[in-house]
Design a protein around this nucleic acid. Structure first.
Lengths: 261, 261
DNA sequence: AAGTGGTCTAGACCACCGG
DNA sequence: CGGTGGTCTAGACCACTTC
C-alpha cells in the first residue's frame, strides 16, 4: 500500500488501468457477472487496495468494450456487497474493511464446517406428530394436524454444541436419518428443490434446566443461547420452524451487517 | 392482453391494471423510486395481495409511459427488499409473508421505541481514557492512545434492560450527556455527519456476576445476552466498539433475513 | 409457439463535487 | 468549471417456462 511521497496525492490511483479482464462473450455467464467476479478477485487479492479509486465508469466501459449500464451493473453488485462505495462527483473506491463475511441465513452446520470443526449430528427423533399450538401457528397448519418433528444433537470434537428441535410440514420432503447425520437440514431441503427465501429469527438466552444440562454436558444453571426461527420459501410458504439451544460456552452468533442507505 | 375468464386459474391476476400511479416528472425524486414507493404502498395496503402476478414489465412500462429499464429498476428494488419474486417465463408476484421487517444495524434505542416502550437512558460514564488492548485493536488506534468511553444504563418503564459500554475514537464527535439521554448513540453520530456503513457483531450469552446483577436488578447467575460490535463508516474507518449486556428476561434480538440468491 | 424475465447496447441529460 | 456518478430512453436478442 505504498503511500508514495508525492505530497499532492491524497488518494492513490488504482492499478486498475494495468489490469486486464478476460470477458468471454460466448459464455453463458453474464458479462456483468464475469466483470464483478474479476473485480472482486482483484480486491480480494489486494490488487485493488482500500481507498483506491476505480476510475470512471465511462472510460472503464470503453476499455472493456462494454456498455456503461453493464459496467454499472457489475459495480453495483459489489456496492451491494459492501466492497465498494460510490460518491457522486468523486468516484468509486474500495472500502477499507477488516472482515467481509456476509450475513446469511445461519446454518449451524455450515458455520461449524467453515470454522473447520467437522460437525457431527445425532438424530434423536424423527417422526410425524400432531402440531402443537405454536408450531401450528408458525407453519400455518391446523392445530393437531400432522407435522414432522426432528430433534438433533450437534457435536464438534465429540462434544455437544447444540440441541436442535425443528418442525416441518408433513410430506414436505423425505428426511432420511443418514443424510441428516452427514449434513445440515438446509442442505437436505435445498437438494429437494426447496429454495429458502427468508426467515425470521429471535435470539435470546436463559439458564439450563437439569435435563438440558445433562444432554448438553453442562452444569444446571449454565447460560444457554436460544434461537427460534421460522423459514419461508420463495412463495412465502413456511417450510420450517425450529427452537434451538446452544451452549454459550462453545458457540456465539457472528454477524456482518450492511446498513441500507 | 387480459386473461380470459378461465375458472381453472390458480393464480389471480393482479388489480394492478386498475391502479393508477402518479408519476411526477418534475419532481427531483427519481421516477423508479416514485414507482417503487407506490408499488410498495399497494402491497402494504393489500391492493396487491400475495400471489398476485404483477403483469409483464413491457406492458407496465407502456402503460406508465416509462422505459422498461426504469420499471425494472423499481421492481428490482422491491425484489431486493423481499417483497416480490421474479421467475423467468412466469412473471413477478407478491411474496406471501407474515412479517417484513428488514434486518438493520440494530439500535437498541430504536428497537425499544418501535416497540412503544419509551426507552430511557442514564449516562453512567463519559470520558477520555487510554485505550485497552481489545479496544485499540478494534478501533485501529495505538494501545494506550486516548479514546472516549461511554457507559449507559438503558431502561424501560423505569426498569433496567441493558448495560451498554461503548468506545469511540477521541475527538470523533462531541458526546453531550443530555443528547445521549434523550436518544440513541447512532442518532447522535448520524446527526454529526457520520454515515454508518457496516458492522460486525457477535451475540453470545453468560451468567451475571454479582456486580452486574446488582446494576441490572437481576439475581446473580441470571442469564444475560452479550453483544460485542465494531461499526465502520463508509470509508471503512472504525467509529465505534461496544460490549453490551442485556437482561435475557427482558430482551431478545429479533431478525428478519433474506437469503442471497 | 407464445409469453415472461434476463441481459445488453449506445446514446442522452442531470445533479453533485472538486478545484 | 470539468469530471463524476445518477437517471432515463428505445430499442434488441436470449433463456426459460408453460401450454
Amino acid at each position: 500500500m505504498a503511500r508514495t511521497g508525492d505530497p499532492a496525492r491524497a488518494v492513490t490511483v488504482s492499478a486498475l488501468s494495468t489490469l486486464d479482464f478476460a470477458l468471454d462473450r460466448g459464455s453463458p455467464v453474464p458479462l456483468y457477472y464475469q466483470l464483478a467476479r474479476q473485480l472482486e478477485a482483484a480486491i480480494e487479492h489486494g490488487v485493488l487496495t482500500p481507498g483506491n479509486l476505480l476510475g470512471n465508469e465511462v472510460d472503464l466501459s470503453v476499455r472493456l468494450g462494454l456498455s456503461r449500464p453493464t459496467v454499472r451493473q457489475a459495480i453495483q453488485s459489489l456496492v451491494d456487497k459492501g466492497l465498494l462505495v460510490r460518491r457522486r462527483g468523486v468516484g468509486t473506491q474500495v472500502v477499507h474493511s477488516q472482515v467481509r463475511r456476509p450475513l446469511e441465513l445461519s446454518s449451524l452446520y455450515d458455520d461449524l464446517e467453515a470454522a473447520g470443526q467437522k460437525p457431527g449430528t445425532r438424530v434423536v427423533r424423527n417422526e410425524g406428530v400432531p402440531a402443537p399450538a405454536d408450531v401450528a401457528e408458525a407453519l400455518g397448519v391446523a392445530e393437531g394436524g400432522e407435522v414432522t418433528v426432528l430433534e438433533r444433537l450437534r457435536l464438534t470434537h465429540g462434544q455437544p454444541v447444540a440441541l436442535l428441535c425443528n418442525y416441518l410440514p408433513a410430506s414436505l420432503l423425505d428426511l432420511d436419518d443418514d443424510r441428516l447425520e452427514s449434513t445440515g437440514l438446509y442442505r437436505v431441503m435445498r437438494a429437494s428443490g426447496i429454495t429458502l427465501h427468508s426467515a425470521r429469527q429471535t435470539v435470546g438466552a436463559r439458564t439450563a434446566t437439569r435435563e438440558e444440562a445433562d444432554r448438553l454436558d453442562e452444569r444446571e444453571g449454565a447460560a444457554l443461547l436460544t434461537m427460534r426461527r421460522t423459514a419461508y420459501d420463495d412463495t412465502g410458504r413456511p417450510v420450517e420452524y425450529g427452537t434451538h439451544l446452544y451452549r454459550a460456552s462453545r458457540y456465539a452468533f457472528d454477524f456482518q451487517l450492511l446498513v441500507r442507505s
